[in-house]
Amino acid sequence: MLLEASGLTKSFGGVTAIADLDFQVPAGLVYAVIGPNGAGKTTLFNLLSGIYRPDEGRLRFAGEDLGGRQPYQIARLGLARTFQNLQIFFNLSVLENVMVGAHARGCQGMVAALLRTPAMRREERQIRAWAWEALDFCGLGELAARPASALPYGALKRLEVARALAAQPRLLLMDEPAAGLNDTETLAMRDLIGRLRDQGITVLLVEHHMGLVMRVSDRILVLDYGSRLAEGTPAEIRANPQVIAAYLGGEVHYAVE
């Protein structure tokens, strides 16, 4: 298992956001987490990425215990994420944003930068090449030189992915990558998620767009009030009466398409 959560619990001032949650994400899959608003999906992502500390329970990623680790330490283990509300570096160019994504793959520090040593320049070329790779993969190559602040929303969503991809992650957490996208852009995002999996990257996906989730996911975890309501393949989830009753409701026909 690439990612394992056991007994994971987190509450905020008496409100339990995640309650005694267990789940496992095998490597190589697209694993979706769905649930109504307030089900604890973003809390789960913030726990996984070290922004929050769990009250109880354990998280293991790639054989390492994530307990007590800072976000940057977790990122260096090979866990990258995108943000639901864009967290783009708007003061940098598109290419620089993605080069920051490759930060953990480099090692040259501030003194080397001040002196612009040969080793630093070599690494700089390598980081640039990695960034270009990620930009092209996400179809952003033509926008590389633009300031990030000049990009339209749809491109910024892909920039979030490119930046995370430049870290060469083993696990990529995607927090509502299709939110706010139009139909064409959503299709392109679906295609992008599929290609990420083809690259061997495990994707953990939080998404409200049921059409996208059902098409792209290998397994789905359904959360309700921070607990596990169901887990299984898209077909199993669609057929699960509890899920239909609690969450999908009228949407089930749409989800089946």
Partner: peptide, 9 residues
């Protein structure tokens, strides 16, 4: 926060 998630201490 995003900087931290890029592995920046």
């Amino acid at each position: 926060v995003a900087a931290g998630m890029m592995g920046i201490d």
